[in-house]
Amino acid sequence: MIELLDLMKDFDEVKAVNNVSLNVLDGEVFGLVGTNGAGKSTILRIISGVIKPDSGIVLIDKRPVYDNPEVKSDIFYISDDQYFLPASTPDEMANYYEGIYKNFDKLRFHKLCSGFGLDTKRRISTFSKGMKKQVSILLGLCAGTKYLLCDETFDGLDPVVRQGVKSLFAGDMADRGLTPIIASHNLRELEDICDHIGLLHQGGVILSEDIEDMKLKMQKVQCVFQNEEEEKAAVEGLEVLLHERRGRLSTYTIRGEREEVEAAFKRGNPVFFEVLALSLEEIFISETEVVGYDIRKFVLG
């Protein structure tokens, strides 16, 4: 488990990380979302032991990470602009990491490279951006570490590869308890991968929730009532987060269990009502607008 408590990091006058507290549970895919400069990379670099925070606590399985090789051997960090040794090939990088991470599985690496169509004898510098990302992901997966930190790693991957990587993540999570932490500036990229999302803005955490919990606790209802009194009566006592009206058709985003919401609407005698599935995007819009943010401006693009 990764625990961040009251983490602070300033770069001169800029507050890169501002009082961040997060918990990453073992075996879940944690997504860090935020705009450029929101502090995602800084948090990942702090977790990986590259940067020392100005204040606050970072614990990996109850152990401090900074300058602690034992803890760092459980972490593999894939940076936004992953570095490879000069003029190296995937094979040579695998050799290199083989000497660094005791659980590095070179055989698996070669198999996966073959599966992804990557030539292990070719210089990485000649690879495309997406291919380099694939090499770094495969190296990270084959390192056999408990935690895999991915900074904007899914940018530049085509859908087929993305799906393949997702399957690998799922397999490793099931097989050996891998805990991936994925940072991205785009919420839509994480929707189908993450179990838990931490939303960052200007160095601080706006929101940190399990996606399933959020989905269960929030309902979207489209309805038509005979008159406004009946509609008011139906939503009375519910925690309405958003309400839109187009003609007589109303759309409500309401915090609450499905059964509770359905019961309330049935009591209002609606002409028509239907509980719809909420996308991650909608959940975030609703949650963040409540606390005064418009995340459409800075996450959804």
Binding site: P69, K72, S73, S79, D81, Y83, I100
Partner: peptide, 12 residues
Amino acid sequence: SQIDFYLSQPTT
């Protein structure tokens, strides 16, 4: 990127 590469490895 080189700092990230080297300092994230299990070393002090």
